[in-house]
Nucleic acid binder design. Structure first.
Lengths: 210, 210
DNA sequence: AATAATCTGTTGCAATTGCAACAGATTATA
DNA sequence: TATAATCTGTTGCAATTGCAACAGATTATT
């Protein structure tokens, strides 16, 4: 089961004549959706980057997920509760498809190619999401800040297929993504640099080990 | 989209004549499966409890997931890598269905009711898994041991629909599930008791707040 | 171009967490 | 039933992490 569906090319090569899908655009900083009531809404990120964010009871920002193109998100994936407001925010220009979960159970009319293609790729989209979430869990179970940083860098390195890469967000956000204090993370980054594990200039990182 | 599929009743009421599904039984402590090569294997827990476990580089046991009946697991959900061995272990008597992911794309023959029913419930199974993983992520992003404990207790309380419940595993395992040191967790449990947030006798917990 | 806002990098100190070790309780095994 | 193994509960101490605060750099906004 390979994930080789590219929603971006797909929607640009195919007329979106499906009445059950809405396409919307967002600019940096805009809220794409809020998880407040169970509407069974599902979103598909076509282009750009977005984040699922919440603030915990201590006022700390928590970046729960970071979304790249082809990834799905939405209320449908959460047990929505009143005292736990989540929202998805665009980090760059974003193109997003909105649909209801029922979309995958019912066709809109006999020859909607758009609808058919999405349904066909439904398992791949979901499987891919589960793999991403499992990756995230493995990262969060790391007990020290150092291990979290190295695990995260390793993931990016594999994704970019290079020992040298730029972080997809600020160091402040990185701390919120790893779920640790920013100053403690900075301290650890410095140690990693001093001990020769990484090179760092700005938000460009180079891994020096193995 | 409600999750009301019950695999246990399903397989007991329906003849399993599907050639593409294997049913196996395991007793406490047995390894159900190991994630070592990408065979696209997917498992469905019919009855019992199981855990997805790994040992990190420091020798700490990590309980990545805890599975109840109706839940799915398997290599298919992971980027399998050599230096990261994961395995699923039965915590009680377990009945497990084994199938390949292709199962959901192809029918075995025209009147295999078993196969059809599983395919029909495929979206619910996957959606449910995603919701569980997101719950897990929210728990792991909690920054203090206290918050992790309270979040976990709260989840169980909601699941059991009661302020009073038994933990599904030992306190040692609970620490491995929360990803924290056991003695530090014990210390925090004692504080929670002393400060009147919880009552605890053995592995039975009662929440005293709100 | 000036101003505001955010981000980076740093530090001292306090609080939390992890580690190691142990005794007693409980559970599994021979 | 005796023995072994695991689990619970505890403690002192060391290491890690979080908190608060600040200055300079960078980036956005007017």
């Amino acid at each position: 089961m390979n994930f080789n569906f590219d929603i971006y090319n797909f929607i640009n090569n195919l007329e979106n004549n499906c009445s059950k899908v809405q396409k919307k655009f967002f600019s940096h900083g805009e809220i794409i959706t809020t998880y407040i009531e169970k509407r069974n809404q599902l979103c598909l990120l076509v282009s750009g980057n977005a984040e699922l964010i919440k603030y915990d009871l201590n006022g700390n920002k928590v970046i729960l997920e970071h979304f790249n193109p082809n990834e799905v998100f939405g209320e449908i994936f959460y047990n929505v509760s009143i005292n736990n407001e989540l929202f998805v925010q665009a980090k760059t220009e974003c193109c997003v498809l909105f649909l209801m979960f029922d979309f995958f159970n019912e066709k809109c009319d006999s020859n909607c190619n758009f609808h058919d293609t999405l349904i066909k790729n439904f398992p791949a989209l979901f499987l891919n999401k589960i793999i991403n979430l499992n990756n995230r869990i493995e990262l969060l179970t790391k007990r020290s800040i150092r291990d979290k940083i190295l695990t995260y860098f390793n993931n990016i390195s594999i994704l970019d297929m290079s020992k040298s890469f730029s972080l997809p967000f600020s160091l402040t956000d990185l701390a919120d993504y790893l779920g640790v204090d920013r100053s403690a993370m900075m301290r650890e980054l410095r140690s990693l640099k001093e001990e020769g594990f990484i090179e760092k200039s700005g938000n460009r990182i180079t891994l020096l080990y193995k």
